[in-house]
């Protein structure tokens, strides 16, 4: 990827993070950790990869994304708002009664959400159904889906994986967001989810490991590799940092859902900008 494109994507991701932190702060608390860990992935997909048209969210032949870890909805809302699926002012209605932006992604409420999720494991199955349907309808389209490492403790994830492998869904590209943490603790202290690459390969998938899921070049290489395999679904295992970019939550055990006041949000955004400047 050329340097300017990387720079552009990084700017969009930074802007998405700022909007996401303010979105959660508008309500006072929310699923910051798992939202922040997928910002680069969602930015890359929506700004660089997916065949979409924000003016036609119901376009039948579009690429689709199922955020199976539906509690990361706030991250997707920030991206969808930036892309023009709805007005950015909606972001400050997160979780308020009557909002179109509920804590968990809901296709009946939000333009651009391709499937409802929240009961973990189900979105992954639905994504398998969507990819199968696209193939049956002969659409030249991909289905992307994002599952959590904690979510992968659900048996349904593996039921879906075995079906997608058996049906050789080459138009299905999954991502496991291995941020290493779940609600109660570090995943290793609950039920460790290791050897995911080998597990998916055993289930008939092509699997790619990405050492830094926040690096656009690594994301690009993995997705290119996935698309070169047309007779198998692909799983891209992303090693990420939970709460990455919301610095007060980084390295903190209880960062699944955090209380964030408006003042705290602005401090965190300032700290994030300072760190980004240092990186430049």
């Amino acid at each position: 990827m050329d340097l300017n494109e990387v720079k552009r994507l990084r700017m969009e991701a930074l802007d998405a993070r700022v909007k996401l932190i303010r979105e959660i702060a508008s309500f006072g608390q929310g699923h910051i950790g798992g939202s922040m860990s997928v910002v680069e992935l969602l930015t890359y997909l929506y700004y660089h990869e997916m065949k979409i048209d924000p003016k036609r969210p119901d376009w039948a032949e579009r690429d689709r994304l199922v955020l199976s870890k539906g509690h990361s909805g706030p991250a997707l809302y920030a991206i969808l708002a930036k892309k023009g699926y709805f007005d950015e002012s909606l972001l400050s209605t997160l979780n308020q009664g009557g909002t179109r932006l509920p804590s968990h992604a809901d296709m009946t409420k939000t333009p651009g959400i391709d499937f409802t999720a929240g009961s973990l494991g189900q979105g992954f199955s639905a994504a398998v159904g969507i990819a199968l349907g696209q193939r049956l309808k002969k659409y030249d389209a991909y289905t992307y889906t994002v599952v959590g490492d904690g979510e992968s403790q659900e048996g349904e994830v593996w039921e879906a994986a075995e079906a997608a492998g058996a049906w050789k869904l080459g138009n299905l590209i999954g991502f496991t967001d291995v941020n290493g943490q779940q609600l109660d603790d570090y995943t290793d202290n609950i039920i460790p989810m290791h050897h995911l690459k080998e597990r998916y390969e055993t289930f008939g998938w092509h699997a790619v490991e990405v050492a830094n899921g926040h690096d656009f070049n690594q994301l690009e290489a993995a997705i290119k590799e996935a698309k070169s395999v047309t007779d198998k679904p692909s799983m891209i295992i992303l090693h990420t940092i939970k709460s990455y970019g919301y610095i007060p939550g980084e390295g903190v055990k209880a960062n699944h859902s955090m209380q964030i006041s408006k003042e705290k949000a602005e401090e965190a955004i300032e700290a994030l900008f300072a760190r980004e400047e240092e990186r430049e």
């Binding site: 039948a60 199922v66 296709m107 391709d114 499937f115 494991g121 189900q122 979105g123 199955s125 639905a126 994504a127 398998v128 159904g129 969507i130 990819a131 199968l132 349907g133 696209q134 049956l136 309808k137 659409y139 048996g155 349904e156 039921e159 879906a160 075995e162 079906a163 058996a166 049906w167």
Partner: peptide, 24 residues
């Protein structure tokens, strides 16, 4: 237009939900 999902009923129901969202 026929799919046998194996002995995995829960997956079948949610896959069906996905198929339905593509107009099937």
């Amino acid at each position: 237009r026929f799919y046998n999902v194996g002995i995995a009923e829960a997956n079948m129901a949610a896959v069906a939900g996905g198929l339905s969202s593509v107009g099937l």
